[in-house]
Simulated assay, not measured.
Amino acid sequence: MDIILKNVKKKDFPVFQSLAKSLGFEIVEEKEKPYNPEFVKEILQGRKDIKEGKGIKMTMEEIQALCR
């Protein structure tokens, strides 16, 4: 059985570690993976382009026509 603890405060983590160790549990710490830097760059560039007026406006019908 797996138990997942989320949002554990840094000061409380040693308590959980020592408790788990005394009970013979294995602790696996998984860090959240950050977004792909290229993806973030594209999103930020897109926001900048829109602010600079480089975007286009489309109606829902035009968008749906593209998806067909």
Rank of each mutant, 00 (worst) to 15 (best):
Y35W: 12
K51T: 02
P34Y: 04
I63Y: 06
S22C: 01
A65V: 04
V15I: 13
V15C: 08
K51V: 00
I63C: 02
E38N: 15
G55F: 09
F25Q: 04
Y35K: 03
E61W: 09
D49Y: 00
E38D: 15
K51A: 03
A65E: 10
V8S: 15
E42Y: 12
D12E: 14
P14C: 05
K57M: 12
I43F: 01
S22E: 15
E32R: 14
F39M: 06
K31C: 13
L44Q: 13
P37V: 06
C67P: 02
E61N: 00
K10F: 07
P34I: 08
Q45M: 00
E32P: 03
N7I: 02
K57C: 04
K11C: 04
K11I: 10
Q45E: 01
K6P: 01
D2Q: 14
M58E: 06
L44F: 11
I56K: 08
K54A: 00
I43V: 09
N36F: 14
I63M: 08
E52M: 06
A20H: 13
R68S: 02
M1S: 11
C67V: 09
I27G: 08
I43K: 03
K33T: 00
Q64N: 07
G24Y: 06
G46Q: 05
E61D: 03
F13M: 09
D2F: 10
L5Q: 02
K10V: 14
G55P: 01
E26S: 15
M60W: 03
I63Q: 01
V40N: 12
K21H: 10
N7T: 05
D12L: 10
L23N: 06
E52H: 08
D49T: 04
E38H: 02
Y35V: 07
P34R: 14
K31Q: 11
E62H: 01
E42I: 09
F25E: 07
G53R: 03
F25I: 00
D49E: 04
